[in-house]
Amino acid sequence: MQGRQYRETHPWIAFSVDLRLAPFNLWMLLGEACSKCEHIAGVPIDPASADELNLFYLAKGARATTAIEGNTLSEEEVSGLVSGTLELPPSKAYLGREVNNIIEACNSVLADLTQGRTHRLTPDRIRVLNSKVLQGLELEEGVRGGLVRSHAVVVGRYRGAPAQDCEYLIGRLCDWLDEGDWPAERLGTMATAIVKAIVGHLYIAWIHPFGDGNGRTARLVEFQMLVEAGAPSPAAHLLSNHYNETRSEYYRQLDRARQTGNPVEFVGYALQGFVDGLRTQTRLIREFQLGSAWENHVNVAFAGSNSAADSRRRHLALDLSSVGRPVAPHELRTLTTRLAAAYAGKTPKTVTRDINALLTMGLAQRNGKRIVSNQRALLAFLPIKATPE
């Protein structure tokens, strides 16, 4: 214990977080993060929309955590890898392997959780995650997935902890995260898990225990800790996305935490991005729900009406809501493929009659000379706001 070199070279690796120094807004962000995670986890959403949401955020998270390390695949290309619809050319195969490793690792964590298997964070578990990150990649001599390094590493201006201390440090980190003096009783399980996940990520980045893949391993640990604490899987990808979107600030915050020796500022930075992402995710889920509720509302409005005109008007009401903007009457005829087929051979008077029918039923509104879906009629509890003069 007395002879550990890191105490001289890396005194900021002190296994301590003084939350008494946290500003009030950190507590507000932490409370909002917990509330929104609970809200998202319990929200009813149809299976197709849920799958779409999961795949969307898996792609964003996998791209983000690899892009931070220099992977150049686009979000569209990563989405193709997630869905299995993209085959990359040989020149980009290694980029695809990097991304697929993250996709497979995240899916493995979720599959284990679904089957009731959780993984206590141990040095062996961190090694396994690093092996998953580096599987199938060409590595420098002496570097192997899951093998704690025996040589010095320098990333940019940062030198990792002394190699002879790395085994000890990841063991100490796991013990601290598992048994340390974390205020779980006062904060609650989810709030404590969020803080521990962010701090665990930070410490692995500081220690840099492996020859390669340390950042991706740190963010994968963060993901595992979040989902095992009950965070919805789409939400658990948000931190990686935040770090990528604010990459220069991410590195500045890592360095700032090293200089101060207290991770509180880094936790605040991470929480702000996490909450911003949760707010966006909540709005997206609300849009999915509104679309489902509107489709049901329109179908009920036309229940028992099976004529060709009623079928056409029902499609018009649904397709008008899908474009999300006011539409000129003459555009309605070709707004979608099925509307173009329905209005083929029909006169403008037919369009006018259909518009009037939707207006009478409360399914559409006029917006000047244009027509817009009355989907907002379902948002019964939005606060009334005065329009500024």
Rank of each mutant, 00 (worst) to 15 (best):
M1P: 08
Q2N: 13
Q2E: 13
H10A: 12
H10I: 07
H10L: 09
D18Q: 11
D18W: 04
L19A: 05
A22D: 08
M28F: 03
L30D: 06
L30T: 06
C34Q: 13
C37M: 15
D51E: 14
N54P: 00
L55E: 14
F56K: 15
F56Q: 12
Y57C: 01
L58N: 01
K60F: 05
R63Y: 02
T66W: 02
I68Y: 06
L73K: 03
E77G: 09
V78A: 11
V82M: 04
T85A: 15
L88I: 12
K92H: 10
A93C: 02
E98P: 10
I102V: 15
I102S: 03
A105W: 08
Q115N: 12
R120N: 06
R125Y: 12
K132N: 09
V133L: 07
L134V: 12
Q135D: 11
L137C: 06
E138N: 08
E138M: 10
E140C: 01
G142F: 15
L147D: 08
L147K: 12
R157W: 05
Y158T: 03
D165R: 04
Y168H: 14
L169T: 03
L173S: 02
L173Y: 02
C174W: 01
L177K: 04
L177Q: 03
G180V: 07
P183D: 08
P183W: 15
E185I: 05
T189F: 08
A191V: 06
A191E: 12
I194E: 02
H201I: 01
L202A: 11
Y203C: 07
I204D: 03
I204C: 05
A205I: 05
I207K: 03
H208T: 04
G213C: 05
E222G: 03
V227P: 02
V227S: 01
E228S: 01
S233T: 06
A235Q: 03
A235K: 00
L238W: 05
L239Q: 06
S240R: 07
N244I: 00
E245D: 11
Y250R: 01
Y251A: 00
R258F: 00
R258C: 04
Q259R: 15
V264D: 04
G268W: 04
F274M: 13
F274S: 01
G277W: 00
T282H: 06
R286V: 04
F288I: 01
F288H: 14
G291H: 12
S292M: 09
F302E: 09
G304A: 10
S307T: 15
S311M: 07
A328H: 13
A344L: 11
K346F: 07
T347A: 14
D354W: 04
D354R: 02
D354T: 07
A357E: 12
L359C: 09
R366N: 07
N374D: 15
Q375N: 02
A377M: 08
P383S: 10
K385Y: 12
K385S: 11
A386R: 14
P388F: 14
P388E: 13
E389W: 03
